[in-house]
């Protein structure tokens, strides 16, 4: 269906998220689970009527969801071509959420503000999903806090909420890419482990590796490799050796001819900078896959500029 639409309206944009640009009319295709945005000047009244009978029009409701200018800017940044609406030295993280039905948003947000820190921006992606954008502080909530909170929401609103607690990232242009990657991990993890409600990179990343096609797997491995190791092969060697030695600091330090305290410092720094707990099983296995990818790059088996990864 979507292909036929794009043939009729070549200017149409197909997106995973609704387009709220006021110059476009946005429709949701339930079959492909995608949004179709068509420039207003390219569509007649009759065509609008016809499209509205086939698809659900979503633009007006999204404007209602993201009322403040800041929310709207974030929305445009994450789903369109908007500028990053934040200038800060601090890192940010996205806490993605999905609720199972539409509720009174003001009550929901009141509950949310009892969890997240002051100054958190909430951006709705549609009526039942969205994200909180949180600046890094010394005291942030953990998976256990979110689990408790999920149950509190369930007992008050009788709704099931799923969270993906993102990693902390620098506030730069690459944030959008990282957001999209996390969104993908969240969708896949939720599909494959529906009984879980709180997801993290550590839990979701291995699932992505087994559920995506090879090209997409290589693409995300490459992106994570760049984000986590910044092409630093020395760091790769340290982390990989640590994981291969059953996360034993003393044994790894001996093999690297390092003092164990120096290694401990490097490991702690890695965990702090990546927000990935490699001392946990899930964190270790996720990063280990990325290490293997890094090793392949080092051995020249995969090129940094491999066309397939472009």
């Amino acid at each position: 269906m979507i292909n036929k639409i794009t043939r009729i309206f070549p200017e149409a944009i197909i997106e995973k998220y609704p387009v709220t640009n006021s110059g476009f009319l946005c429709y949701y295709d339930d079959t492909s689970k995608q949004y179709i945005a068509i420039p207003k000047q390219s569509i007649s009244e009759r065509e609008q009527l016809l499209l509205a009978t086939v698809f659900k029009q979503v633009q007006s409701s999204l404007s209602r969801l993201n009322r403040s200018p800041l929310q709207e800017k974030w929305y445009f940044f994450l789903s369109g071509d908007g500028e990053l609406p934040l200038e800060t030295e601090k890192r940010v993280r996205f806490i993605h959420f999905i609720i199972d039905y539409e509720i009174d948003r003001s009550d929901f947000l009141e509950a949310i503000h009892s969890l997240v820190q002051e100054g958190v921006t909430t951006v709705w992606l549609n009526e039942t999903s969205g994200l909180f954008i949180e600046l890094e502080t010394a005291d942030h909530f953990t998976s256990a806090d979110f689990l408790s909170f999920t149950e509190a929401l369930q007992s008050d609103f009788y709704l099931s909420t799923d969270f993906y607690i993102g990693r902390f990232f620098p506030a730069d242009r690459k944030l959008k890419e990282r957001f999209q990657r996390e969104h993908l991990y969240f969708q896949l993890a939720k599909k494959y482990i529906p009984d879980e409600h709180i997801f993290t990179f550590e839990k979701a990343f291995p699932i992505s590796l087994v559920s995506l096609d090879r090209l997409k797997v290589m693409e995300i491995l490459h992106e994570e490799w760049t984000d986590i190791f910044h092409n630093n092969f020395q760091l790769l060697k340290t982390i990989q050796l640590f994981l291969e030695n059953n996360s034993n600091i003393s044994m790894t330090a001996k093999k690297l001819y390092l003092h164990r305290n120096s290694l401990q410092y490097r490991i702690d720094k890695f965990i702090e900078q990546t927000s990935i707990d490699i001392k946990s099983f899930h964190g270790a296995i996720s990063v280990y896959f990325i290490c293997i990818f890094g090793q392949s790059l080092l051995r020249g088996e995969i090129s940094q500029t491999d066309e397939k990864l472009e």
Binding site: L147, S148, F149, S155
Partner: peptide, 17 residues
Amino acid sequence: KDRDIAMVFQNYALYPH
């Protein structure tokens, strides 16, 4: 919400702030 039930869970289910 219309069943007139109240639930108690394992993880305390409280709002931290």
